[in-house]
Amino acid sequence: MMSSFTLDEINAQPGIWRDWAAPLASRATGIREWIATRAPREIWLSGAGTSAYIGEALARQVTGEGPPLLPLATTDLVARPGLGANRPGPALSVQFGRSGNSSETVGLIDLLDAHMPGVDRLNITCNPDSALATRQGPGPGETQAIILPPATHDRGFAMTSSFTTMYLTALACLDAGFDAGTALPALSDAAAAILPGLWSLDAPRPERAIFLGSGELTGIARESALKVLELTAGRTLTQWDSTLGFRHGPKAAVDGGTAVFVMIHPDPQTARYDMDLAAEIRRQFPDISVTTIGGEGCDIALNLTGTAGDAVLYVLPAQVLAHRWSEALGLPVDDPFAGRNLTRVVSGVELYGWQR
């Protein structure tokens, strides 16, 4: 295995989570109190690409009392400002960003400043010098920013530790039942036990890879598919879907060169549907690879902790396999596109003013 920033960043996640546990637990308590005082009618979860998938997963993960969570990607809000401006308020905008400086990140900040100044903001970023970290709204909405540990500011092209740590950070701030002080060390131990086996899996690169999951794991499946697509520079085609949604047309993508990964949900009721689909695909396509990911008895067992943070463990196989398959293709893993048509931080998007 050749060294790379991406390899180091994947393997660094257990240590990052453990070190972040106590600071996050303290900060999250204050953020939850602030949210309760501000009493938003709804909470928007925004980001672009991988950062948007954090919101998609969280919106299906956080349960209990509190305002509804709406995944509204920055790419959607910037292109269609009315999606936010025409909603009843008050609202809290939670925006995620590794760099905190992408075109759409800045575009959403500008949009809130100009047209939705009453929206409160919680910005979660890995870059202390970014727009997300430093810009304050004009009011009357209030702005809070959480800066993640420096190690999460991935230097590789693909988001790995930034994705999982931003997810856990938001979970701690939005779900009072998630105790970061105890959950993150447990997740750290689980990930540290899993990773060595993932690097030695017998899993040759397929022509296409499909990732499936239910609930919050649908968002994790989407992120998993993107990791493989990115790090193999599009030479491994990928697809993602919900477990039950896959039968309704998308299963047409399966052929002899496909590898299917089915995430078995920790909830026993949900897991029945996941396991049924895995068995169905194996029966209908006996010559392809079908791999289950989840708790005890799965092909890839994750040492689940029983906390809401277990979702981050499900993305580790795709992170590792994407790196291995990229290396097998002879690509520079930290920049598979060699700066040609995709870049680590999206910039140069023309932003247009909006007239309400």
Rank of each mutant, 00 (worst) to 15 (best):
M1E: 12
M2L: 12
S4R: 05
A21N: 08
A22W: 10
L24W: 00
A36E: 15
T37Y: 10
R38Q: 15
E42Q: 15
W44G: 01
A48G: 12
S51A: 05
G55Q: 03
Q61V: 08
G66K: 06
P67S: 04
L70F: 09
L70V: 12
A73P: 15
V78T: 04
A85R: 09
N86V: 09
P90L: 05
V94W: 10
Q95H: 13
G97R: 01
S103G: 08
D110W: 06
D110Y: 07
V119R: 00
D120M: 06
T125P: 10
C126Y: 07
S130I: 09
A131Y: 01
A133P: 15
P138S: 04
P150C: 06
M159G: 06
M166D: 13
L168S: 00
A170C: 11
C173V: 12
C173H: 10
L174D: 01
D179V: 03
P185V: 07
S188K: 01
D189E: 09
A193E: 15
P196K: 00
W199T: 02
D202H: 03
D202I: 06
D202F: 02
P204N: 11
R208D: 15
S214C: 08
T236V: 14
Q239M: 15
S242A: 13
T258I: 10
A259G: 09
H265E: 12
P266W: 03
M275F: 08
T292I: 10
G295K: 05
L313D: 11
V315P: 13
L321W: 00
H323C: 03
V333W: 00
S347I: 14
V349Q: 02
L351Y: 06
G353L: 10
W354T: 12
W354K: 05
